[in-house]
Design a protein around this nucleic acid. Structure first.
Lengths: 143, 143
DNA sequence: TCAAGAATGATAATCATTATCATATTGCAA
DNA sequence: TTGCAATATGATAATGATTATCATTCTTGA
């Protein structure tokens, strides 16, 4: 099976053997909120969701997301409409996206794991996550 | 060799066996300009380059890039700073990007070609290109 | 040659993201 | 535990890339 039927959403701690980072209140809240979401969310959407539970500013959410990203706890992806979607780092999220209508279909297979390991060795980077997205035109949009 | 020494830039027509699209003047200009660039450019940068040669509006460039993208002649990638970079579709462009300082290193290997073919069959999409990018923290940025 | 439709350009409008700055919190030393 | 300095937070203004608007100019087929 190459194409996923639906999105996964089990939560899983992303530990990389790093010095355990101390998160601020805001960062912890944002991470918690993200981990309870079944799919990736924009900062604004997260704001909408979170403010119903607790008072939190939009700027704090943006700052927390950036920090969590650099810590390797959150990953991001940019949609065709230019908004950035964030999700807790768990499994990979790969998509097949129609350039015309924007529909995105999740992809099951990830052939990149191996390369990621190689890169980890060959470069001086500590790699946290990757994005893989295919672009084309879906059947319904094709002439 | 996994990491590229420098960017490639040979030009290559992207024909997919589609009905030959008639490009507008603007689209043709933009495509030509892109094909003469050694690396991906933002729409604004392209505007800066092109207006020196011929009069062209920024809006036209954005429109042309979108159209060329849907035609499978141009591919895009979004940087960490939120600007979209465009390049003529030739080889793949894959990167290893530092979440901290934003530096991007091109990657040679592409393990995705095979999957792309599989997807082409398993889905109703006509796939034009894909993006693959690794995110982490580079040696100089790491504590 | 002549419209009708499409493309173009200049510019205003959008909208996600960042910067700013005053206030609130936190962590640590005494 | 108190007091202070550093950091985090929130509200909001500013930024900047992209899109929408609309009047004008090309194209193209009859």
């Amino acid at each position: 099976m190459i194409l996923k039927k639906d999105a996964e959403n089990s939560v899983e701690a992303a530990s990389k053997g790093l010095p355990k980072p101390r998160l601020t209140t805001g960062q912890q809240s944002v991470l918690d909120a993200l981990q309870h979401q079944p799919q990736a969310l924009s900062a604004q959407a997260l704001y909408g969701v979170m403010r119903r539970q607790q008072p939190i500013g939009l700027a704090t959410i943006y700052r927390a997301l950036d920090a969590l990203k650099v810590l390797g706890l959150v990953q991001h992806r940019v949609t065709l409409t230019g908004e950035t979607l964030y999700s807790a780092v768990k499994h990979d999220h790969h998509y097949l996206t129609c350039l015309q209508c924007g529909v995105s279909v999740p992809i099951e297979t990830c052939p990149v794991k191996e390369l990621e390991a190689q890169l980890q060795g060959a470069s001086s980077f500590r790699i946290y996550y990757h994005t893989l997205e295919f672009f084309g035109v879906c059947g319904r949009c094709e002439v």
